[in-house]
């Protein structure tokens, strides 16, 4: 067990070092969601005048989106990095050591989750500095961070899964827009009951990302809504389990290379 932990630690250490040494990989995931938050929370402020809009501050409403988007960026980085390892044969080098598959997966995820956690703290801090008000207080913030980190883990596992399946950084990059697409057709900009176009509302309703956002959102603007939280955590946990399962199968095939 200590050996496994040691190995996970090493792989995670490497993935953190590698990420930290490419400012181009750290700065956009950190700043881009903040920029979008600044622009949209003001540009869309008019939406709060709509009858039935749940809050007076669009920033309160919009903040959860940053967590989702930031984690998605971090996952792109994790996926691209791992794909590069496949591409260059670095994964072969690792495969020749007694390192275990679990160590590789968890280690690679460790880097992305560390970045995701850092982002979550930054977004939360910036949000609070600009006057976001949590109806659920400190306990809500802690729960929000927990869910945000779980979501980061889920996206990162999807990134790792894509990387192991695709095996080339360019392919991973080109598949990520599909994930962004999922984020865009969710309830990120308006509550689902205020979406007017019915096909869009239907898509947003079957889109699991909506429930992630709503789980985060309820903690800020609504209170301890058990249903929204259960859905949010449920979807996040399913995402983590599903993607990790897929990733370990993909890793096994990668290493078998039949």
């Amino acid at each position: 067990m200590t050996l496994l932990l040691n190995q996970i630690g090493r792989i995670a250490w490497r993935s953190v070092i590698r990420t930290a040494r490419q400012p181009a990989a750290v700065i956009p995931p950190l700043t881009f969601p903040l920029m979008l938050m600044a622009v949209n929370s003001n540009g869309l402020r008019a939406a709060t005048h709509l009858p039935g809009f749940p809050t007076k501050s669009f920033l309160d409403f919009f903040l959860p989106f940053s967590f989702i988007q930031g984690a998605l960026f971090a996952a792109t980085t994790a996926g691209t990095d791992l794909a590069r390892d496949v591409d260059t044969g670095f994964l072969n080098r690792l495969a020749l050591t007694p390192m275990r598959g679990a160590a590789l997966l968890l280690g690679e995820l460790g880097g992305a989750v560390a970045l995701g956690a850092l982002q979550a703290f930054v977004y939360l801090g910036v949000g609070l500095a600009f006057g976001v008000h949590f109806v659920t207080g400190i306990g809500g913030m802690a729960t929000l961070l927990l869910l945000a980190i779980l979501i980061a883990l889920g996206w990162a596992a999807i990134g790792v899964l894509l990387a192991l399946r695709a095996g080339s950084g360019e392919k991973v990059q080109s598949q990520f827009p599909l994930l962004f697409f999922l984020v865009f057709i969710s309830s990120m900009n308006l509550p689902r009951n205020l979406i007017e176009v019915s096909w869009f509302r239907d898509l947003a309703t079957i889109n699991p990302v909506s429930y992630l956002i709503e789980g985060l959102r309820t903690l800020i603007i609504e209170g301890w809504n058990a249903q929204a939280l259960a859905l949010g955590f449920g979807v996040a946990i399913l995402m983590v389990l599903g993607a990790l399962g897929g990733a370990s199968i993909a890793l096994r095939q990668r290493m078998e290379r039949t």
């Binding site: 496994l4 275990r100 598959g101 679990a102 160590a103 968890l106 370990s248 096994r252 290493m255 078998e256």
Partner: peptide, 15 residues
């Protein structure tokens, strides 16, 4: 998936 399970999977796939 737990770490041990993943480890088992990988070991198993190599016979």
């Amino acid at each position: 998936m737990s770490a041990a399970a993943a480890e088992h999977d990988r070991a198993e796939c190599r016979g």
